[in-house]
Amino acid sequence: MSTYAIGDIQGCHQHFQQLLEIIGFNPSRDKLWLVGDVVNRGPNSLAVLHTLMQLGDAVIMVLGNHDLHLLMVAAGVTTEQPHDTLKSILQAPDREKLLSWLRHQRLFYHEDEYALVHAGLLPGWSVDQAEYLAQEVEVILCNDQSFQEFAPSMYGNDPDHWQDSLQGEHRWRVIINAMTRLRVCTREGKMNFAFKANPTDIPAGYVPWFNVPNRASKTHTILFGHWSALGLRMERNLIALDTGCLWGGRLTAVRLEDRTVFQVPCA
């Protein structure tokens, strides 16, 4: 059995299929760990969702900001943006089944020495605390009533840092924003959501979330995506997997057992 961690697919179904062929993926034997953003901007998000659902228990994925955006559009909280490619899902005959499947995916996952998240973790969060906090939000997303009640409050940049005393929508928004939108923060954990560029251009006072000294999650190897300008980065306790397939880069898989890298060039 092999476990393959794969970067942001974002609706690039053809390249995803090519990558599965290259790694010789066998759903009866192997596992896929997906860092989220499986839909949007690419040409065939509907096919990606259908493929993932067909793979069943062979897939473990965490939600990304584009996956949540699809849920917000479907819930009527926001509208499609000019570059969105969500219409095929929203108009699909099995739309409700697809959306329900997506809402039941994790926000964070960890197993043995690895942890899976879309964007990042705040420096004060241990892996165990992150799992506990993610489960708070997952319960809300999975329940029809609580999801409808919380959805209008999900978007927003405040609060921009964590406090144990946070409650309700403010607490859940910080958890979601950190796990699906974080790239840089201060050493104290204040998040900057405006920055999306290369690491060399980070504003003064901020650092990549994974470079904060004494980060509590250093006990595990964190697998994440979201930051395409960062590219593939493999360190002892860190693997960044968003290699910009959507932008003409590559779609990347890393076999966790030996850290072998597999890539498909994306036109």
Results as ranks from 00 to 15, higher is better:
Cys185Gln: 01
Asn211Gln: 14
Val184Met: 06
Val184Ala: 06
Gly248Phe: 05
Arg233Ile: 06
Leu141Glu: 08
Leu256Val: 02
Val174Cys: 05
Pro199Ser: 02
Ile140Val: 15
His170Val: 02
Leu166Phe: 06
Gly244Ser: 14
Asp242Phe: 05
Ala178Met: 02
Gly248Leu: 06
Glu257His: 12
Pro213Leu: 11
Lys218Thr: 09
Val184Trp: 05
Arg259Val: 06
Gln163Asn: 08
Lys190Arg: 08
Thr200Arg: 15
Thr186Glu: 01
Asp144Thr: 14
Trp162Ile: 01
Ile202His: 03
Pro152Gln: 06
Trp227Ile: 01
Lys196Ser: 10
Gln148Phe: 11
Ala240Trp: 01
Gln167Pro: 11
Val137Leu: 14
Arg171Ile: 06
Arg181Cys: 13
Gly189Ala: 02
Pro199Gln: 10
His170Lys: 07
Ala204Thr: 12
Ile140Leu: 13
Ala194Asp: 13
Ala151Tyr: 05
Lys190His: 07
Ser153Glu: 08
Arg215Gln: 10
Arg173Asp: 10
Leu223Asp: 06
Phe195Gln: 02
Pro213Val: 07
Pro213Phe: 11
Asp158Gln: 14
Thr260Ser: 14
Asn157Lys: 08
Pro199Ile: 10
Leu166Trp: 08
Val174Thr: 06
Ala240Pro: 05
Pro208Gly: 02
Gly168Gln: 10
Val254Cys: 06
Ala204Cys: 05
Arg183Phe: 10
Val212Leu: 12
Met154Lys: 00
Asn192Met: 09
Glu235Gly: 01
Met191Thr: 02
Trp172His: 09
Arg183Gly: 04
Thr221Arg: 13
Thr252Cys: 04
Lys196Tyr: 05
Leu141Val: 03
Pro213Tyr: 11
Phe224Asp: 00
Arg215Ala: 12
Phe147Glu: 02
Glu149Asn: 13
Ser146Leu: 13
Asp201Glu: 15
Asn237His: 14
Glu188Phe: 07
Val212Lys: 12
Glu138Arg: 01
His161Gln: 08
Ser165Trp: 03
Arg173Gln: 07
Asn192Tyr: 09
Leu246Phe: 12
Glu138Gly: 04
Asn237Cys: 07
Asp258Pro: 10
Gly249Val: 15
Ser228Asp: 15
Ser153Ala: 13
Gln163Met: 09
Leu223Ser: 10
Gly168Lys: 09
Thr243Trp: 07
Leu246Asp: 03
Ala151Gln: 03
Trp247Leu: 13
Leu256Ile: 03
Leu238Tyr: 00
